[in-house]
Design a protein around this nucleic acid. Structure first.
Lengths: 109, 109
DNA sequence: TTTATATGTAATCATTTAGTTACACAACTG
DNA sequence: CAGTTGTGTAACTAAATGATTACATATAAA
């Protein structure tokens, strides 16, 4: 069973959990209330997020409060970010191309 | 069947395919040669990458050449990048903490 | 035209995933 | 103490995933 940040953020429910917990720390039930699926399903998602370090769970009384450790998203960030320049190049050359078309059009008017 | 960039890059083989094709455009067989798994398996991975726009496949003769469209990684980049500041804050405060310790130690020496 | 090569795809399979319900148990509340 | 609440987990299920082998087809080469 793979358990890494890429697999963790592949699931839309888990991404939403991360989004929600980034707003405020919540108990397991408070997280589950925000979704249609059952509480055990959310519990499992939280376990997966916990296992790859993205979420930590702190016991306080009978509740468990969950919070995000954003720094564990860094490996995913770095992998994608290394292609940043390449899509910027593309977008710039697209903009250049559009500008060329615009200028040509302007000259023809 | 979900087919989005997050699901596409969740698989390590697909990430490696993206890495390899970022170096140079390759035919399907040339991609497959670089992996232990069978050619049809690679074919399927390429199909998935194609379906979510990350890889395009151009027929030339009997070969099909594959190349990456990096701009289709942007949605994944944006989702992760929005937490950039939060882990930077963390890292900065860690560095601050380390510096405090250092200064304290310096004063004690 | 025959043969070889490059590739896609169908059929199949084992494993993983994401969900469910039912139950156990610890910790608050009255 | 008895009941309620918050949560984990086991058992189960359907669907998705990632791989394989076997076969079909198109194109190039002899």
């Amino acid at each position: 069973m793979r358990r890494d940040v890429f697999q963790a953020i592949a699931d839309p429910v888990r991404r939403e959990i991360i989004d929600i917990l980034s707003e405020s720390e919540l108990s397991v039930n408070e997280v589950a209330e925000r979704f249609e699926i059952s509480r055990p399903a959310i519990s499992k998602h939280l376990k997966i997020l916990d296992e790859c370090g993205i979420v930590s769970i702190a016991k306080r009384g009978r509740e468990r409060f969950c919070y995000v450790n954003h720094q564990n998203l860094i490996p995913a960030f770095l992998w994608v970010e290394k292609y940043h320049k390449q899509w910027e190049k593309r977008i710039n050359s697209f903009e250049e191309y559009v500008n060329q078309l615009r200028n040509k059009k302007d000259r023809n008017e």
